[in-house]
């Protein structure tokens, strides 16, 4: 059961990765990174249960925090970049 969940999460990670590679706009890539971080959190949690060590849950929680703060900081910076140019062109990043 956990193995199936882990495989599904890996597939979703691959899809998010594809979006990060292809994604034409900056928003696509930011969302892909956010998605990838979330899937990393899930994968760590599932991996912990898969190997019989639920202690990994704490680590997964901290990863979620890092992911959250990181994405907010990235969005702040993107806002700054868009402001620093005269006309914001989000699809040109």
């Amino acid at each position: 059961m956990f193995a199936a969940a882990a495989i599904c999460i890996l597939v979703v990670m691959a899809l998010a990765l594809a979006r990060a590679f292809l994604g034409p706009t900056v928003c696509d890539r930011i969302l892909a990174v956010n998605m990838f971080g979330t899937k990393t959190v899930l994968l760590i949690a599932v991996y912990g249960f898969l190997t019989g060590r639920p202690d990994f849950l704490d680590i997964a929680i901290t990863y979620a925090l890092i992911n959250f703060i990181g994405v907010i900081a990235v969005l702040k910076f993107v806002e700054g970049i868009a402001d620093s140019e005269q006309q914001p062109r989000p699809d040109e990043f």
């Binding site: 990765l17 990060a20 590679f21 994604g23 900056v26 890539r29 930011i30 892909a32 990174v33 990838f36 971080g37 990393t40 990181g70 990235v74 993107v78 970049i81 990043f93």
Partner: peptide, 12 residues
């Protein structure tokens, strides 16, 4: 910008 995002994914 995409490279910075991808390096974040790389770290993850």
């Amino acid at each position: 910008f995409a490279v910075v995002m991808l390096s974040g994914i790389y770290s993850l």
